[in-house]
C-alpha cells in the first residue's frame, strides 16, 4: 500500500503540473524554432528557451516544495499512510519526471531540429546539450534547497545563484566547449564529457544530500504550533 501511496502522490503532482509541462514544451519548441533564425530573433529564441526551462525549474522546486509547506498541504500529505522520507521520494521523483519530460523533449528537439534545419550549426550542439545539462543540475540544486531548508528565503538565494550560473556558463564555458561552432560535425570532446559528468555528479550530490538530511530530520512540521 505504501508504495502505491507514493505512486499516487507522484501522479497527483504530475496532474497538478500538467499545464506547466505542456506550456513549457510549447514555449520551448517555439523558441527553438525562433533560435534558428538569424540576428535578434535567433538570440531572442535562445533566451526564451533558457528562460522557459529556468521558469519550469523554479516553479517545480519552489511551488512544489515550498508552497506545500506554506499552504499547509504538506500536513495533509503526511497524514496519508507514508513516512516523511517516502513523501520526499515522491516529491523528488514527481519533480524530476515533471522536469525531465519537457527537458528531454526540448533537448531532443534542439538536436533533431538543428540537424534537419540548421546543419551548419551542428558543431554547437555539444555546448547546447551541456547548457541544458546545467539547467537540469540547477533544478536538482533548487529542489534540494527547497527540501532541506523549507525556506522561501533560501530558495530565493538558490534561484539567484543558479540563474547567475547560466550567463556565466554561456560566457565562459560555451566558447571553450565549442571549438568549431560553425562546423557541421558535433565534437564530443574531453572537456564536453567532463562538463556533462560534472553536471550529473553535482545533480546527484544535491539530491543525495537532500535525502540524507531528510532521513536524519526528526521534525517534519516546520513552524508548527506547540
Amino acid at each position: 500500500m505504501t508504495r502505491s501511496v507514493v505512486g499516487h502522490l507522484i501522479r497527483k503532482d504530475l496532474f497538478l503540473y500538467r499545464w506547466l509541462i505542456v506550456g513549457t514544451v510549447l514555449v520551448g519548441l517555439c523558441s527553438i524554432i525562433l533560435s534558428g533564425s538569424a540576428g535578434a530573433v535567433g538570440a531572442g529564441g535562445q533566451i526564451l528557451l533558457v528562460t522557459s526551462v529556468v521558469v519550469l525549474a523554479v516553479f517545480l522546486a519552489v511551488h512544489g516544495v515550498i508552497s506545500e509547506r506554506q499552504t499547509r498541504s504538506l500536513l495533509f500529505a503526511l497524514s496519508l499512510p507514508i513516512s516523511p522520507l517516502q513523501y520526499t521520494v515522491a516529491k523528488v521523483v514527481a519533480g524530476l519526471v515533471a522536469f525531465l519530460i519537457p527537458w528531454s523533449i526540448l533537448t531532443a528537439a534542439i538536436v533533431g531540429l538543428t540537424h534537419v534545419f540548421n546543419p551548419g550549426a551542428v558543431g554547437a550542439l555539444p555546448s547546447s546539450v551541456a547548457l541544458m545539462g546545467l539547467l537540469l543540475t540547477n533544478f536538482c540544486i533548487l529542489t534540494a534547497i527547497g527540501l532541506i531548508s523549507g525556506s522561501e528565503l533560501w530558495s530565493v538565494v538558490g534561484i539567484i545563484a543558479t540563474n547567475t550560473s547560466v550567463p556565466l556558463f554561456m560566457a565562459a564555458m560555451v566558447p571553450r566547449l565549442t571549438p568549431a561552432t560553425d562546423g557541421v560535425m558535433a565534437l564530443w570532446s574531453g572537456p564536453i564529457v567532463v562538463t556533462l559528468l560534472a553536471e550529473f555528479a553535482v545533480a546527484v550530490l544535491a539530491l543525495a544530500t537532500a535525502f540524507v538530511v531528510q532521513s536524519r530530520r526528526t521534525d517534519f512540521a516546520h513552524g508548527a504550533a506547540a
Binding site: T71, R72, F76, P81, I82
Partner: peptide, 25 residues
Amino acid sequence: MPAEQARAKRDIGFVSHDMGLFANA
C-alpha cells in the same frame, strides 16, 4: 511510532486547523 507510521496511518483520520488541501484542485 514513528517507525510504523505508514501502517498506523492506514487506520487514522487526521484533521488539523493547521492543515491545508491542494489549492489548485
